[in-house]
Amino acid sequence: MTGTKAIVLEEHCKSNGLSYCRFDYRGHGLSSPETFLEMTLSDWICDAETILLDVLLKDHSQVVLIGSSMGAWIAIHLALRYPDKIAGIVGIAPAVDFTQKVLYEKATDEQKNDWLSKGIAYFPSKYESNPYPITWRFIQDCKEKWQLLDSATLSNRIPNRCPVHLFHGQCDNDIPWMTSLELAERFSTSTVMLTLIKDGDHRLSRPQDIQQISAALMAFYNVSKRLESGPSLL
């Protein structure tokens, strides 16, 4: 929650009189770093759900969800679970199904053997000096419970009700921008916008990127305000 986008968006919301909430999932940032290897996507969706129900919806009838990478994947699941409470989703480089499509399918034989024998494999990180630990529990949890694009249970549609605005950099070397294109095609709602930023990377943290994200946020807020349901932000 101390990332560039989170901080700048908070400043933007304060200057426009909007409520705003940011938090770290368990095992991330300032939140219990020692528990990271014990967590799965189920746990992090539970964290987001707790913030939504016990914090945001105490004072607001609807919220706009802003999620980056894995956070966008989680935001979509919250919108599916609470369709009447979500006024819109701003998804930044959504890492939907990345555990299967990016991690498992591109893992080396050594990494797959480590998963089977040790329950954990390590992946090089472009953002940190130490390799990134990924547990087999995390991979299995995502595959069994949370896949969206490969899920037959959704009848080839993601049955969301709220409007969505996705942003994806076409120079994203972590999550292919075609993921956002497929998401846009699969959403049930007719109100879906996809902004491709030709020279943008995965983080989309440059001032010009955040300016576009802020504009999308304000568009959702203005619509919600006309409906008398000014949102908080997650």
Score class of each variant (00 low, 15 high):
residue 144 E to D: 14
residue 21 C to E: 02
residue 134 I to Y: 01
residue 128 E to D: 06
residue 214 S to F: 03
residue 93 A to C: 14
residue 178 M to I: 13
residue 186 R to M: 15
residue 130 N to K: 15
residue 127 Y to C: 03
residue 98 F to Q: 04
residue 52 L to F: 01
residue 140 Q to L: 12
residue 108 T to P: 01
residue 91 G to L: 01
residue 8 V to Y: 09
residue 178 M to L: 13
residue 38 E to K: 12
residue 157 R to W: 00
residue 119 G to S: 04
residue 61 S to T: 13
residue 149 L to P: 04
residue 209 D to W: 06
residue 162 C to Q: 10
residue 83 P to Q: 08
residue 70 M to P: 01
residue 25 Y to G: 07
residue 20 Y to P: 06
residue 195 T to W: 01
residue 28 H to E: 03
residue 128 E to F: 11
residue 110 E to T: 11
residue 137 R to E: 14
residue 128 E to W: 06
residue 43 D to W: 03
residue 222 N to H: 12
residue 92 I to P: 02
residue 23 F to V: 05
residue 220 F to C: 06
residue 201 D to Y: 10
residue 119 G to K: 00
residue 194 L to Y: 03
residue 141 D to L: 00
residue 169 G to P: 07
residue 233 L to K: 06
residue 193 M to S: 15
residue 39 M to H: 02
residue 156 N to L: 10
residue 65 L to N: 04
residue 157 R to P: 00
residue 228 E to A: 13
residue 93 A to E: 00
residue 201 D to L: 03
residue 2 T to L: 11
residue 143 K to A: 12
residue 74 I to H: 02
residue 57 L to W: 08
residue 183 L to I: 05
residue 186 R to I: 04
residue 70 M to D: 02
residue 37 L to F: 02
residue 38 E to N: 13
residue 49 E to N: 11
residue 213 I to Q: 10
residue 102 V to S: 03
residue 216 A to C: 03
residue 196 L to E: 12
residue 40 T to M: 01
residue 196 L to V: 09
residue 78 L to V: 05
residue 82 Y to V: 08
residue 44 W to C: 10
residue 166 L to R: 04
residue 151 S to Q: 06
residue 161 R to A: 10
residue 147 Q to G: 09
residue 119 G to P: 07
residue 231 P to W: 06
residue 93 A to V: 00
residue 172 D to N: 07
residue 10 E to A: 12
residue 132 Y to N: 05
residue 6 A to R: 02
residue 97 D to Y: 03
residue 202 H to F: 09
residue 100 Q to R: 12
residue 84 D to S: 14
residue 135 T to H: 05
residue 21 C to L: 13
residue 139 I to C: 05
residue 172 D to S: 07
residue 122 Y to A: 01
residue 39 M to Q: 15
residue 152 A to Y: 07
residue 7 I to S: 06
residue 65 L to C: 10
residue 141 D to K: 04
residue 46 C to K: 13
residue 5 K to M: 10
residue 76 I to T: 12
residue 209 D to H: 14
residue 227 L to W: 05
